[in-house]
Design a protein around this nucleic acid. Structure first.
Lengths: 213, 213
DNA sequence: ACAATAACATACTCGCGAGTATGTCACCCG
DNA sequence: CGGGTGACATACTCGCGAGTATGTTATTGT
């Protein structure tokens, strides 16, 4: 094992990222099982041999994709939590916009598409991990921000954000995913940024007023 | 082609339904591509030969499943729209409870699981049809009920239900689907009936008050 | 300059599962 | 009470795509 040069490592790293990006695209569009590794290779401008040079198996490639892009998404989310000196209400807005804003969550919502698709039972380990760490973690973050807001007096003391947070998060996820089909199915199209803002405000309003039973 | 007896037809019909049910179960749990027709046959207590006696191809079986259960679901939804002499608010509650109530949408939410999974690009025709007729049609129904409520004075005249309806419907769909994984992933578990009621009330409240920008 | 290896490309294997071909039995009609 | 058909079961084919084995080239340490 001779130590290789920095140039090699860098080129290898670039190629690796190209493969991850191509795989995300192809897996999201064609589905994990349906997608051929040759498709991924084509999309990345290489051959199947290159893929097997970096990943042991098709499943390993999938896991690589998900872990890479999920780490990116949660990185952004945690940035919002650490943003200094802003009230809980603003922090909620920031968090949701960082996660669901149109330039995020893996290029153009592809990660969501991938996760919400058949990956589930095809690769059980991956499935459990993302179900546990994805949506659940997101509304746990929201829940803690709601508590923060109650202490600061922004929200009424008896506000219960759980139901709202759950429906909001899952609704935004699905809408985000469907925007990729808005071209073929015009009924699905919306101004997603407006939808994001409006629904977040709706959520916040429900924490302030006395509405809801 | 000799006219066959009623008994034969009835038995054949029963078997057909058993196949549809087994296919829904297996496709939803294992995914369309991943599922083997032998699995479906096993689940129905028959062999692959029986399947090919009723359906020309695997895709035809999938289409059969979706059309059958989707027709059931929309039948219930339209019942709610036709229910005579009740105010729009109650009609909204009824509609959503009929569609998302725990005994509906194909046995135990399996249809949703099937639809939200990889079926998408694996069978493009099916995909487009359900995207067009499923969620979109649902929030179109809601939108018309909102208009009804505005005329009757139940909701404020400038209320805009579109964003709320979209997020509500897609949120409920995803939460419903995830309840099937609540056993393995406790973070996902909720009292779904309570979540349904609460979020519906939240939606209605947003149409009444002066909240939201 | 040369050996060694990383970084791929190319050509093959091999199992899995959709689809098919054929057999078999029960039952209804005449 | 036979023969014809419907309703399956059984046994086979065959293509597709993951994984593998092997070749080829550029680069680097010595």
């Amino acid at each position: 094992m001779r130590p290789s040069r920095a140039l090699r490592l860098e080129r290898s790293d670039t190629r690796m990222h190209a493969l991850l990006e191509a795989a995300l695209e192809v897996f999201a569009l064609r589905g994990y099982r349906t997608a051929r590794l040759d498709d991924v290779a084509d999309a990345a401008g290489v051959t199947k041999g290159a893929i097997y040079h970096y990943f042991d198996t098709k499943e390993a490639l999938l896991i690589g994709v998900i872990e890479h892009y999920q780490a990116l998404a949660f990185g952004r989310a945690e940035d919002a939590l650490r943003e200094p000196g802003i009230p809980a209400t603003a922090r909620i807005r920031l968090l949701l916009r960082k996660v669901f804003g149109h330039s995020d969550i893996g290029s153009r919502g592809r990660l969501l598409t991938l996760l919400l698709r058949g990956v589930a039972h095809e690769v059980p380990r991956v499935h459990e991990r993302w179900l546990r760490e994805g949506p659940a973690r997101l509304w746990a973050m929201l829940a803690s921000l709601v508590e923060e807001g109650k202490k600061s007096g922004e929200f009424r003391p008896d506000a219960d954000g759980e139901v709202g947070a759950r429906v909001l998060v899952s609704g935004l996820m699905l809408q985000r995913m469907w925007q990729q089909h808005a071209g073929e199915v015009p009924e699905l199209a919306v101004d997603y940024d407006r939808l994001l803002d409006s629904s977040v405000e709706l959520f916040i309003a429900s924490l302030r007023g006395t509405g809801g039973g």
